[in-house]
């Protein structure tokens, strides 16, 4: 349990994003407007991560456990050494699933468009 008062961190980030969209985007042009747009995208990404992060972390850890790996580094090393070749299809399926999770936070439109 966190000791903080309302709003939550996600809601705080949301409030800044809304301000950028409402006032900054409409009040700027050119390079500054482009960078405001990038900032909006970054904050929206953080909001999605704060929303789904805990669940995604547990799912990702379960996938690593299934392959007997402590972390990404160990999984990467065992793929390179060929140790997991006899489970190649399973490895690809699990790695791709985690990539989709990353995309659902980073850029859900990209996932929907492909």
């Amino acid at each position: 349990m966190i000791p903080h008062d309302m709003p939550t961190s996600r809601e705080l980030v949301e409030s800044v994003r809304e301000w950028l969209e409402r006032d900054v985007l409409t009040g700027t042009t050119g390079r500054l407007q482009f960078h405001a747009r990038v900032a909006i995208n970054v904050l929206a990404m953080v909001e999605r991560e704060l929303e789904t992060g805990v669940v995604q972390a547990a799912t990702h850890q379960a996938r690593l456990d299934q392959l007997g790996c402590a972390d990404e580094a160990e999984l990467a090393a065992r793929i390179r050494s060929g140790e997991l070749d006899d489970r190649a299809a399973e490895v690809r399926e699990l790695v791709w699933a985690s990539v989709r999770d990353k995309l659902s936070v980073a850029n859900p439109k990209y996932l929907a468009g492909s």
């Binding site: 990404e72 580094a73 999984l75 990467a76 090393a77 793929i79 390179r80 060929g82 490895v91 690809r92 790695v95 791709w96 990539v99």
Partner: peptide, 11 residues
């Protein structure tokens, strides 16, 4: 920053 996807693709 190891990436399992990249290792699969390198192979």
């Amino acid at each position: 920053q190891p990436h399992p996807t990249f290792e699969l693709v390198f192979r």
